[in-house]
Design a protein around this nucleic acid. Structure first.
Lengths: 184, 184, 184, 184
DNA sequence: CATGAATGAGTGTTCATTCAT
DNA sequence: CATGAATGAACACTCATTCAT
């Protein structure tokens, strides 16, 4: 599993053949086949694994905060921190989201579209509460939530192109940016 | 060229074989080869074409504005319009950025990061001038530019999930958001 | 053993892998291997088993008959009856006879050619005795015996192609046909 | 095409891989693929080719005869001649009929039973006409036709076991046998 | 300017076979 | 007596690439 993630992160999804993955695990192509019923299943399990790992990370790094603005800052920092700590995981997730398609171009992942709304929900919750209690000003929560997530998710592709990106600074800047954007 | 873009957008980069591209152009695989010295060159030219097309669109839709804040608003509106009108082009660009790698995982594009950097350059220019002449406050231009671009590029996937998205409103909301974020 | 026969009859010799056979027996592939020293041996034993079963069937269904013509009719009916009752066995036998070859096309069965003459012997015996005692007319016993066997053996391939063949009628018709052909 | 037939006849259907077939044609596996869209199509075309060749041979060797009995004799003689001359074609046809199945054991041939039915049709036609005009007696045309074909097709294997078989005599004996069997 | 023919390298997949447990 | 793990060799199939025409 880890070798598969490493392989996809390093040589790309297309070149991450079973031979390549097996080589990293010290196994033959056929042995990889023994453990997974096919390449598609393997990649499906890679997604599950990475997503689980992400959820666990976030659960431990996002302690309770007293006010929505602080929650928002914590959210951004935890998320950028995750991306920084697991660049490969994010890279892999993006590679699969973009390149794991059938012959009609449809994603071969099961719950693809719903992922979007689900990932937006906690953010919109923070923003709504902040507006209700007067910490935040007036703005559309959907557009703002989308922009925040987009800024975080953009790190993935960026990492492919700009490997030495300073993520700590990026997190600080982002938090400040959205503090201004949401302020009353 | 157009057929190549269509093919990549519809079946994905990996499945966009020369046969597939040729079929869309009413040509044989070998004829595609006659016009390009290889698949890599073809894809390289796809990037150039898409980028040029984007630049042209933007040039015609972004009239001179007196101040950087107004320039920024115009930039955002023109870009949201472009992404809405040329979703495939964006899809193709992302697919190539993520999946067009050699066996070491390095992008096979000449300009490497430059694709990203180039697309960020005009934005950073607007932001820098705005800071210099006192219209904008203090913030990192790179992070802010990246966030703006990310918010725009996120429309593509978003449109798939929420087909009836009100893009005019989205553009307005985005412009307002970044107005606040960049204000002095 | 029975599971192997069932597997070959249902999915064909080529697709009757050890996994497939093992699955039907509630065993792992390796367990099948424990009981037989290899796939070839397994298939060899399948042939032996099927042939034995056939011999037993015939022994019980072919009581003594007073005259060669009646013996011939009994022979035909017993044989077609066997094929009808054990369609799978015949199917398997044919599949192995046709498809169980080494890289030179030679059958991997031990007593391949001799089977032919051996299966003809009892038939020629009936025919010769019938000619000697005047029940049958003049004809070549070899050609006639071959034709009778061929008519019976042809049911096998037929069953693959025409699964709902009426074998009772076929037996009756065959017996009548050869009665006329051998009559004085 | 001829190489494919030769390959199937010599090494069996299962071992007649595209590599094997290509080797006989002095071509690579991929070149075989270029000419046929897949193995299944190739084998389908083999059947068509063999069937056509058989029909042509028969057309030239079976001159018009005045009465059904004489037609039948001509049919038998022409067919024994054909089987003797094209043993491989018959072998191939049987191998495909028995071994060309999908994972459920169903034949992958389009015409399914039609291969058998088609080969029986001209025979049944002769027999029916003979019964109608009173040359032949009463009997089931399907069973009789099947028996005649079986007797002819049995020559193939027979020739392997008894290489010096006198085919002229065999044809004569067969014709006589079925003359008696069909006589009024 | 374009094609048909051909190929080598590679892919995912299957399978009989081995072996330590 | 049985299995899980592993493998090498094979298979059908795809594809970018070459080349004579």
């Amino acid at each position: 599993m880890d070798c598969a993630i490493e392989a996809i992160a390093q040589v790309g999804l297309a070149k991450a053949s079973l031979t390549e993955i097996g080589k990293r695990a010290g196994l033959s192509k056929a042995a990889v086949f023994y453990h997974f019923s096919g390449r598609d299943e393997l990649i499906g399990e890679v997604v599950v694994t990475v997503l689980q790992r992400g959820a666990e990370y976030m659960a431990t790094r996002m302690p309770e905060r007293p006010t929505p603005p602080e929650e928002l800052r914590a959210y951004i920092e935890a998320n950028v921190g995750y991306v920084a700590a697991h660049r490969d995981d994010v890279k892999v997730l993006v590679a699969i989201a973009v390149g794991f398609t059938d012959e009609n171009g449809e994603s071969k992942l099961r719950g693809d579209a719903s992922v979007y709304e689900t990932s937006l929900a906690p953010l919109r919750d923070i923003l709504s509460r902040g507006q209700a209690d007067g910490h935040f000003g007036e703005f559309d929560t959907r557009t703002t939530a989308m922009t925040i997530r987009a800024a975080i998710d953009a790190i993935g592709p960026q990492l492919t192109a700009v490997p030495d990106l300073d993520l700590a600074a990026y997190a600080r800047d982002l938090a400040a940016l959205f503090e201004r954007a949401t302020a009353r």
